[in-house]
Amino acid sequence: MIQLQHLNPTEADTALHRLDPRVKLIVALSLILITGLMPSGAFGAYIALFALMMAEAIIARVSPVLVVARSLAVLPFSLAAVTLIFTGPEPYLAALPVTGWPISEPGLVQCVSIVFKSLISVQAAILLIATTHFTTLLWAMSSLRIPGVLVAIISFMYRYLFLLADEAARLSRARDSRSAVPAGSPVTARSLIFRARTTGRMIGSLLVRAFERSERVYNAMLSRGYTGAPMQIDPPQLCPRDVLIGLIPVLIAASLLAISLII
């Protein structure tokens, strides 16, 4: 099970925290894009990119250890790429004992490359969210032409997510405290259906409550003059200095990409 904890932006007030969120969003996406375009097996470039992320973390006064530790959450997904090791072409490095599957060198390189690239990408995303509040990201998204309705829906979701998550946690505790089938007991078909029924009803009740709440919220919106169109204060002008700062990591990463494509 992947355990992830919701990351809040750190309290520090660094150059990265102050950078325009639109710039940060685009820089993070560009870094991920460049990482994705890196050729397989360019380990020198991967290490340089990793160093770039760590440098950003230090500038933002976010613990590099935390960034790395949190990025490791992608590892379970690597299973999808592990097959490459045994299905890749020659040359083979060795054969696995017992099964005798051959370990393909290009397959291994490819697999490790995917995992490295994935780790670097998620580190870029972590740095984004560790230096930018989600509400700031929301206005950045809408001023970057993501449809306003979608951004408004996401904003509502963010607002009520924790409320409903608390509700779900309460329901879950209530279920466990009077559950006829203890959590660790062996699962039979009958108990499986029983468990699914309990959980399914909880989900149903969450949805019913969400519907009812949305009606009340809608009334509250109408009372304050809502007419159906999302509205917000115009975002401030993009400052050229912020764009220049944002260009630095992108240019470094892009030159790394250029170098590793040439070599």
Partner: peptide, 27 residues
């Protein structure tokens, strides 16, 4: 959904998200 679109979908989305957190043991 008309003007209800935004609050309804946003809050139902939060409920789906919260619902995804409710686990149940399977074999």
């Amino acid at each position: 959904l008309g003007e209800r679109q935004i609050p309804l979908m946003g809050i139902v989305g939060a409920a789906i998200f919260a619902g995804q957190m409710l686990n149940f043991t399977i074999p």
